[in-house]
């Protein structure tokens, strides 16, 4: 007799746990050949707010040694490699050809390696010691913005998703991600990989749902420091920029496809620059340092 397959329930990923949406709603995105991909949680405003709380309580991620963050990002690559065939299957279900699916998974895993390496290098590469014209030691360093909301690329469901998330967490931010609405499967599986990769719960939170519905709530949330968004329509951009004035959260729109860009600049995009001054005693400098 043929074995009955165990079907998977798709859930959200908040604070390292896998809750269903509090709203009880679901939607059924269409996959290859018009077949429904499953009953996907339609995350609500309340889910988003819960996820922000989780992300805020995980901001000690930014205080970890960059070396440690680097190892954890590398560990994510290890976890993804083991699930490569699952991701490929899902990409195919979502409409990719076998070759494209294979390539996207390889790109995604290699992105983890790329950004793992940046964790303890961008500071060294882009910080500065500033040669002020007075007896002071003056330096500028990067510091994570805090909690970043992410509108993930709609089409590039795995490589684009990771290409957006990795630079944000490599820089020590935590994030709340709204996955691709039409292609959510890889995001959900990614959360399972993240949950087993030494990444502390709450650093990455992943919601599925409807962008139109959540956009305003993301823009106006007072405890979100920045929004990084891909594939955004002009009206959505205007809405995010307008709502961002609530707490002057930084609105960052990706022009390039995050699946294709490998660069430290997306890391810097969610960093603040802090400049510190301190007097240096000097018997030759004129006047007192104070």
């Amino acid at each position: 007799m043929k074995r009955i397959e165990v079907l998977k329930t798709y859930k959200l990923y908040i604070g390292g746990k896998f809750p269903r949406t509090e709203s009880g709603r679901y939607y059924q995105p269409e996959g290859r050949g018009g077949k429904a991909l499953g009953n996907i949680c339609q995350g609500s405003r309340k889910d988003f707010r819960n996820a922000v709380v989780a992300a805020r309580s995980a901001t000690s991620w930014g205080k970890r040694d960059p070396f440690n963050r680097s190892q954890i990002l590398y560990r994510i690559a290890e976890m993804l490699e083991g699930r490569a065939s699952q991701f490929e299957d899902e990409l195919k279900q979502q409409g990719s050809t076998a070759a494209a699916a294979r390539k996207e998974v390889e790109t995604a895993i290699d992105q983890c390696i790329y950004y793992a390496g940046w964790c303890d290098k961008y500071q060294q590469t882009f910080s500065s010691v500033n040669p002020v014209a007075s007896a002071h030691f003056n330096f500028s360093v990067y510091q994570p913005m805090g909690v970043v909301a992410v509108l993930a690329p709609e089409k590039s469901a795995l490589a684009g998703l990771l290409g957006t998330i990795l630079p944000i967490i490599a820089g020590g931010n935590t994030c709340v991600v709204l996955a691709s609405e039409s292609k959510p499967l890889c995001a959900i599986t990614l959360s399972e990989a993240l949950a087993t990769s030494d990444l502390p719960g709450g650093v990455v939170n992943i919601l599925t749902g409807n962008r139109d519905e959540l956009l305003e709530h993301i823009g106006t949330h007072m405890d979100v420091n920045a929004v990084v968004a891909s594939d955004v329509s002009d009206s959505h951009k205007a809405s995010l920029r307008e709502n961002a004035i609530s707490n002057l959260k930084r609105a960052i729109f990706c022009k390039e496809d995050p699946a294709k860009t490998e660069s430290p600049y997306p890391i810097l995009a969610t960093q603040e620059i802090k400049t510190t001054w301190h007097p240096v005693e000097s018997s030759i400098a004129a006047g007192g340092g104070y």
Partner: peptide, 9 residues
């Protein structure tokens, strides 16, 4: 959380 921090100045 500040963009410019002065230590002892």
């Amino acid at each position: 959380d500040a963009g410019v921090v002065w230590g002892n100045t």
